[in-house]
Each structure stands twice: as C-alpha cells, then as structure tokens.
Computed example of a mutant assay.
Amino acid sequence: MRLHEYQAKGIFADAGIPTPDSRLATSVDEAVDAGAELGYPVAVKAQVHVGGRGKAGGIEIATDDDELREAADAILGMDLKGYHVDRVLVESAVDFTNELYLGVTMDRGEGEPVAMVSSEGGVDIESVAEETPEAIAREAVDPAFGLHPYQARKAVYESGIPRDVSRAVASVLETLYDLWESKDASEAEINPLMVTDGGDVVAADAVLNVDDDALFRHPDLADMEEESYTDDLERKAGEYGFDYVRLSGNVGIIGNGAGLVMATLDLVDHYGGDPANFLDIGGGAKAERVANALDMVFSDPNVDSVVFNIFGGITRGDEVARGINDALSQFDEIPKPVVVRLAGTNASEGMEILDTSLVQVEGTLEDAVQRAVANAEEVDS
C-alpha cells in the first residue's frame, strides 16, 4: 500500500522526524484558509502517487492569498501523469541551504535491508543513482539487529554530508529505519531532507510504502488504505484484490502471475507498444474475477486494446476459457479489442472453447502481443 505524502509525514512526525507544519485541502477555499493559518510563503503540493510532481506542475510556491488561490485552482483537478488531483497539501515553505536524500529499502540481490544516504538530494536523485551511483552511500543492515548508530554515522560520513549537520541526519536515518522495520514497509524515503540556515534538518517530502500482506498487523495503516487511493482504478483494484499498477501507455495487460505479467510488459515494449498497466489477477480465472479485471482495463480511458495472457497450471485452460467467455458475454458491447493467449494445462481445449466473436485468439505470446500492439496503433491512428 502506497501512502500519500501527507499520511507518511504524519507518521514521520509522530516518530520524531521534523516535518513542516501543513494542512490538507480539497478545495481552493480550504487551501487559502490553510495559507492564512500557516503564514506565507507556503508550498502547494498535489497528493498523487507519482514522482516528478514539481517538474509536472504539481508543486507551486505561493507568497500571498492571490498566488495561493491561483496555484490551488491550477493544481486541483489537473491530470498529473495520468492521475486526477483531488487534494493538495499546503505546508510552510522551508528556507534551505542544502537538500539531502535518505532511504531504506530491501536489497533483494543481497537479501537484506539497505540504508542509503546522499548529499545530492532533490528532484534528480534518480539521475544521481543512474549516472553517479557512488554519490549514494549504502549501508547493509542485519535485520536481526537493526541499524546500529555507528552504521548510520558511517553512511552519513561516507556521503560527504557536512559535519555540523551529520549528527542530526544520522538520527533521522535511524528513525527512518525503525519506521521501515516496525511498519513492515517495503520502502521509506525522505527526498529531500532539507538543511536550514540554522543547521536544522526538515523532511520536506515523505514516502512510506507498506507491505499489503502485513496490514493485518497495522490496523491504523489499514484505515488509511481507502484514503490512499488516488483514482477509481486504484480503488477498484483494492476492492477486487488485484495487484495493479497504472502505467502511461495504451495497451492493457491482464495475466495470472507477476512474472507472466512482467514478461508481457517487456514484450509489449519490445514490439513497439506502450503498456497501460500491470494487472495480476492471481490464481484461477473464474468468470467473476475475469469480469472484474476487464472492468478495470475497460474503465481506463488510456487503454485502446487488451492482451489477456494466461498460463494454466492448477487451473485448467478450458476453465479459463469458459471464464473469459462468460465474462465477456456480460458486456452488451466489447468496448476495446481483446486478444487472448492460453498455455499450459488443457490449453488446446481452451483455445477451441474461446468465443472468437468476442475475442481474438493467438497461439503464442509473441503473436498475441504483436496483435494487441497493432490493435492499439489502429485505434490511436
């Protein structure tokens, strides 16, 4: 589960990490009231699950009521990289001299957590990681013992952060790791951690992504799940119990198994298409579950075609085919072309059962993806 910035900042603040004073607003008037209460200047920040908000126009600085009204009016309701903005965070602007980066995640290659620090925080941290990875200090953590204070200090020292703020930064890193561990997070991040003229540090942004399978241990976080949805598609995915990620393309992808879906995404890209989503419906493909998956991709206005990639293991191909037929027969009109590829147990029987008046059938994954890409290009043209 991905928390919004305002939700993550509330958790960070409760743990003792300094954050700017802020107010959440869902209307222009609420934003202006928040600015008057906080005092100017303030930052107006779109609350959506996407990076690069500043470059996309989702973050503005306002120095008076008129500027705040104009900024809030522009951001609320905007489409930001495919996400509808329905709320903004109005927070006191930070007068800073430096921007740092702190993060904690799982290093799956090493099989252990890793704490990261960089003196080059800010909007281009992804470029830093790609072009100059040595600028990010990394410290592997034994999960049995957690992040030792000396490890936090070592990471801060190796990142080249000035000595006068190193103790404060190390303290924030220790707290960030404790939150990552105690909240069963997959990722915890502060970018940027701003350094003020007085040598204080303030978390100007906050990321906290929590393992869905651990939410039963965190009822307080589970209560935030509904609020963390950005749009109807994310809300539907939560209701249907799907693993779903919205992307920026126009080829809808449905599969049963994360690896299978990832391979399909790669092939769509390989054949010149642009994936619209990651949607794993999990084991089984009964009519109701298939119909829910199709409802999701058909509801995405960016989708021009759909590829259904199913590998039958325990679930037989003929059962999958009947589920697809039953699901599509519930629609008065198929809104977007659907290509189906079946493989695995009873795949040949399933291919014969599929109603070709409802779907296009291909024998290989490569052929199915190429046809779906061609369908999308035809609609797009």
Score class of each variant (00 low, 15 high):
residue 86 D to R: 13
residue 32 V to L: 10
residue 114 V to P: 01
residue 32 V to Q: 01
residue 216 F to S: 06
residue 149 P to Y: 03
residue 72 A to R: 04
residue 130 E to L: 14
residue 342 L to Q: 11
residue 125 I to W: 05
residue 129 A to F: 12
residue 47 Q to S: 02
residue 80 L to Y: 02
residue 249 G to F: 12
residue 245 V to P: 06
residue 172 V to Q: 10
residue 279 L to S: 03
residue 112 E to A: 14
residue 354 L to E: 04
residue 268 V to N: 08
residue 42 V to W: 00
residue 115 A to Y: 05
residue 132 T to E: 15
residue 332 D to M: 13
residue 45 K to A: 04
residue 31 A to T: 02
residue 295 D to E: 14
residue 370 Q to Y: 01
residue 380 D to W: 08
residue 102 L to E: 07
residue 320 V to F: 13
residue 346 N to V: 04
residue 235 R to D: 07
residue 290 V to T: 10
residue 365 L to E: 02
residue 173 L to F: 05
residue 220 D to C: 03
residue 239 E to N: 09
residue 290 V to E: 01
residue 17 I to T: 00
residue 263 A to E: 09
residue 360 Q to T: 15
residue 111 G to T: 12
residue 184 D to K: 01
residue 297 V to K: 03
residue 269 D to T: 15
residue 322 R to W: 09
residue 46 A to Q: 03
residue 165 V to E: 09
residue 98 N to H: 11
residue 283 G to A: 07
residue 55 K to G: 07
residue 11 I to R: 05
residue 80 L to F: 06
residue 181 E to F: 08
residue 15 A to D: 03
residue 114 V to N: 02
residue 136 I to F: 12
residue 191 N to I: 12
residue 90 V to W: 01
residue 368 A to K: 00
residue 197 D to A: 15
residue 265 L to C: 14
residue 251 V to E: 03
residue 170 A to K: 05
residue 58 G to W: 04
residue 286 K to L: 05
residue 356 T to G: 02
residue 186 S to N: 12
residue 82 G to Q: 11
residue 159 S to F: 07
residue 120 E to R: 15
residue 63 T to V: 12
residue 29 D to K: 13
